[in-house]
Amino acid sequence: MKRNRNLIILCVFLLAGLIMPLATGASDPGFYIEVLLGGLMAGVLYSLVALGFVLIFKASGVFNFAQGAMVLFAALSVARMAEVMPLWLATLLAIGIMIAFAFIVERLVLRPLVNQDPVVLLMATLGVTYFLNGFGQAVWGSDIYEINLGIAKEPVMILQNLFQGGILINKDDVAAAVAAVVLVALLALFFQKTKTGRALRAVADDHLAAQSIGIPLNRIWVIVWSVAGVVALVAGVIWGAKLGVQFSVSQVALKALPVVILGGFTSIPGAILGGLIIGVGEKMAEVFLAPIAVKAFDLAGGGIENWFAYVLALLFLLVLPEGLFGEKHIDRV
């Protein structure tokens, strides 16, 4: 009961913060909607990266620190190969590379460390991160590379008769949102309707029980790392098309950490909702909260959106330690 009460208080507090700029007249409605949309669009991308974390954690209990590096590596592969071949072919080949990568990780990293402590596996994925970042730049280069999806970059103004100056949206943001929705729908179908998907869920629930009924753990790990690789590729291509493919893409992917903390490590809906909350929260905070905080506390200035995402996630953790949709962990003593 106390927990629910705290959750309600937190939600009311956050909702009040969300509508404050509008209610106090600090922002005109058109601009407010633009910031909200900007946050949602950023959130969609965070959700995509977070999905990769969740998929691997669900299937193997491994927190894959290398997900950001996988996003970079996949995007670099597409961008560089697309320079000498059509984009669709480069994408297909990059999917092949990510599947090959999944095989290598399973064989060289996961299999030798099976039954080891989770922290050992976490450290192993940290090693994979450094390897993949360095190897990716050594093979593909460290410049800024372009992925051209053929979508116009110029903004489009809508609802000009409703809001002064209209509301600005970008076609590539809309394309990103559509791609994310399609991907999530495909993943849901895969998990719910296919035999492999059911096997993956069985492994996620209890890998020892799954093994006892003949589900091959090694094959499942390869599949799940491959799926996470494809999700990383989609996120990398969308991000790369917007801002260029470069090393920093892997760092932006770390924004998915607060998303999975908030959404829960094992929940796909949690990753999606968490991404949207973090995206909207950080953009609102940067635009509306930062100037007030700087003035009120005479701060030295500085962008707050990077660390505000973690503050938001920690606030949720205070009332929901397993995240929004994470599994409750109860030990009997």
């Binding site: 601009f31 801002l243 090393f247 932006v252 953009k283 635009v287 962008g303 959106e305």
Partner: peptide
């Protein structure tokens, strides 16, 4: 107007929305 962009500077949506405003 002082508009900081955090390292590495890829995420600038909030900054440019403020510029638009």
């Amino acid at each position: 107007l002082l508009l900081p962009v955090t390292h590495p500077g890829v995420e600038q949506k909030a900054t440019w929305l403020q510029i638009r405003q």
